[in-house]
Computed example of a mutant assay.
Amino acid sequence: MATNVLGPIRLIAAFVEHLQTRPDATIMTVSSGLAFLPLKITPSYNASKAAIHTLSESVRLQLAGTSVKVVEPVPPAVRTALLPGHEDDERSMPLDEFVTEVVGLIEAEPDAKEIQVERVKFLRYGEARGDYDQVVAAVNG
């Protein structure tokens, strides 16, 4: 878990001064829908992605009023080879669809702080909708 969080922290620290000299710069972090609710088989991953989300918000506050934006894509489960068998998981979003939707959102909403494809909103807003327990049960069922 430490490298999942320390890597972005160290990269941001290494480049932030340089980025602040640029007229328009972006730091992009990647969290996950699992930053907002737990998947019982990946507790460290969930925790590290929650940390990345909070890091993103904190750095965004620190850099407010500068030329540096902080943008956080929040993917759902995406079909990739990162986990064995995951690239064939029908419950996961096909990678090409994810990329297409993310690029479209970035183009349509250039000032967005979080990039949320439709499929992640079920996870992202369970607590706000009041159905958090049901979402946790569905994800872990």
Results as ranks from 00 to 15, higher is better:
Ala77Tyr: 08
Leu39Glu: 11
Glu57Cys: 00
Leu39Lys: 14
Arg60Gln: 01
Asn46Gln: 06
Leu6Tyr: 13
Val30His: 02
Ala108Tyr: 07
Met93Pro: 02
Ser58Tyr: 11
Asp111Arg: 13
Leu11Ser: 11
Phe36Pro: 08
Asp111Val: 08
Ile12Val: 15
Val71Met: 12
Pro84Gln: 05
Glu118Gln: 12
Glu118Pro: 04
Thr66Gln: 08
Ile27Phe: 10
Glu97Ser: 14
Thr100Trp: 05
Ser67His: 08
Thr80Ser: 10
Glu97Asp: 15
Glu127Thr: 11
Glu57Trp: 07
Ser67Glu: 00
Ser32Phe: 06
Thr100Glu: 13
Ser48Glu: 06
Leu83Trp: 15
Leu61Phe: 02
Arg60Ala: 14
Ile106Gln: 08
Val5Arg: 06
Asn4Trp: 03
Thr21Trp: 05
Thr3Asp: 09
Gly130Ala: 08
Arg129Asp: 06
Ile41His: 09
Phe122Thr: 10
Tyr45Lys: 01
Gly33Tyr: 04
Leu61Asp: 12
Tyr125Leu: 09
Arg129Gln: 05
Ala13Leu: 02
Ile12Tyr: 04
Ser92Asp: 12
Thr100Ala: 15
Leu63Trp: 00
Val74His: 03
Ala81Asp: 13
Ile52Trp: 02
Ser67Leu: 03
Thr80His: 04
Thr100Gln: 12
Ala50Thr: 13
Tyr132Ala: 03
Glu109Pro: 00
Leu34Asn: 10
Val5Trp: 03
Leu39Asp: 09
Leu105Pro: 07
Thr42Asn: 09
Met1Val: 11
Val59His: 00
Gln116Cys: 15
Thr66His: 01
Thr3His: 11
Ala128Thr: 11
Leu105Lys: 12
Pro84Thr: 01
Ala81Lys: 13
Leu34Asp: 03
Tyr45Thr: 07
Glu72Asn: 15
Arg79Lys: 13
Arg79Ile: 05
Gln134Arg: 13
Ser92Met: 10
Arg60His: 03
Arg10Leu: 14
Lys121Ser: 02
Val78Thr: 13
Arg10Trp: 15
Ile106His: 03
Thr42Ile: 15
Leu123Tyr: 14
Asp96Leu: 10
Gln20Leu: 06
Ser32His: 02
